[in-house]
Amino acid sequence: MSALAAYATSTGEAFQFWVLGTVAVVGALCTILMRKAVHSALCLAGTMIVLAVFYLANGAYFLGIVQIVVYTGAIMMLFLFVVMLVGVTAADSLKETIKGQRWWAAACGLGFGVLLFAGIGNAALTEFAGLGAANAAHGGNVEGLAALIFTKYVFAFEITGALLITASVGAMLLTHRERTERARTQRELAEQRVRDGKHLPPLPAPGVYARHNAVDVPGLLPDGTPSELTVISTLRKRGQVRDVSGEALADLKALEQRSSERLGRDRDEEEANR
């Protein structure tokens, strides 16, 4: 293992780098180019796993495991959870709205990348000490990190703990909603409905046909137009009401035709039988 972290990299590591490095870059590009946030998150998770492997390859065994457990396992799942909460909105297109933003971003990114590469290339980075001695000093990578964290970096460590506590409390505060008024009882709601004079009976149910009575399918009015009222407000706000009027009418037509055909055929058969 110590040889792995030493200056001379093995051919195996080189092979691993080029293959997994390509995967990491593709994953990163997909992260920023995927239309849906879920896909982006998954791509990012892939890139992070590749990075975990690179940490291991670089002799940072503890970090490699932490990367998988904490980052990929916890943080990315938190992302997915929030994506689920927020929902995939219609505004999530990749069409640019700010004039010139893409060009500026491309120019800055290109310039920045070129400069970084130039900086790295210019730096005298030929001496690689390897982590063998450092890891061996305390009997292993984890022990070495522990020794540093609890001695040299103990204050930073404690303060980071305080930061985590603060962050969790802050997250609770931000997402918590205090109810400022008493919830209205069913009786009060009923009285309110009568007083308003609209929709005395319950709102119409979504869907009118058995095969289309999903919650996102609006019911049709007698003239065939869909009624927004039949879909719950959350879906309406998210724009996730399925516009089915044309589709439904086509389906209806097909159904009628099929049934008439079948009925007609049946009749023909009956006549033939007769």
């Binding site: 700010i98 933003q101 500026w104 971003a105 800055c108 990114g109 310039g111 920045f112 400069l115 970084l116 130039a118 900086g119 210019n122």
Partner: peptide, 27 residues
Amino acid sequence: NGYVRSYAVSMFGGTAVLIAATLLMRA
């Protein structure tokens, strides 16, 4: 314009300029 992304571009560009300046000074 109020768009946080525009401000981010200027920050990013500024960072690039800073790096360029640093490299130039080192050179």
